[in-house]
Each structure stands twice: as C-alpha cells, then as structure tokens.
C-alpha cells in the first residue's frame, strides 16, 4: 500500500509517500532523518502484517515543507541524496517535491 503523508496548500504539494509493501520495518529512516519526522507504527491496514512500518508522525505531516526544508535542494541537497531516501534499502520512500 502507498501511504501519502503531507498536504497541499497555496505554495505547493508536500507529500512523503511510503510504500508499506516494500518497507521491511528496519527503522533506518527513523535514525537517518535529522528532523525526526519518521516513526515505526503497527501496520493498521494489514491485520496480518508481522513487522511494523514507517510512517510520518502526525506532528510533522502538517508542516513537511518546513520540517524537510533543511534537506532540500535549496539547502544544497540533491533529491536522490536525501538522508531518508539514501537510508532506505528497499527504496520505499518518495518525496513529491
């Protein structure tokens, strides 16, 4: 399942997508993110799932533009070089902007 966390407002689309079928529950993104936007949660959409999956905390989901700002191109990062995307082995994390 693809979970989209974030929002759309007058200044653009700010969504982080997590592919829960790819996410193996390792938690490396939680460690890697300098803004602490990720957490590991029980997979609420699959009652049979054994491992936890990554999710964006509700605190950060409504301010992603600002939480993720320090890692964005304007701050000298390439999109593929984002700490969370680099940390994710199974390639489950995507950014819309």
């Amino acid at each position: 399942m693809i979970a989209n966390y974030g929002y759309k407002d007058g200044s653009g689309d700010f969504f982080i997508s997590i592919d829960t079928d790819r996410c193996d529950g390792c938690g490396d993104c939680v460690e890697a993110c300098p803004a602490d936007i990720f957490e590991m949660v029980e997979d609420e959409f699959d009652i049979e799932a054994e491992n936890d999956v990554a999710a964006v905390t509700s605190e950060h989901a409504k301010k992603l533009k600002y939480s993720c700002g320090p890692c964005k191109p304007a701050s000298g990062f390439e999109k593929a070089e984002l700490p969370c995307i680099r940390a994710c082995g199974p390639d489950a994390i995507g950014h819309s902007w």
Binding site: N4, Y7, D9, F45, K62
Partner: peptide, 12 residues
C-alpha cells in the same frame, strides 16, 4: 475493499 493507496488532507 483493501487499501492500496491513500492521501488525506486534514490541514485545510
């Protein structure tokens, strides 16, 4: 009826 993808707007 199993979710494959979702998007929620609860900011506005």
């Amino acid at each position: 009826g199993k979710v494959k993808a979702f998007l929620m707007n609860d900011k506005c």
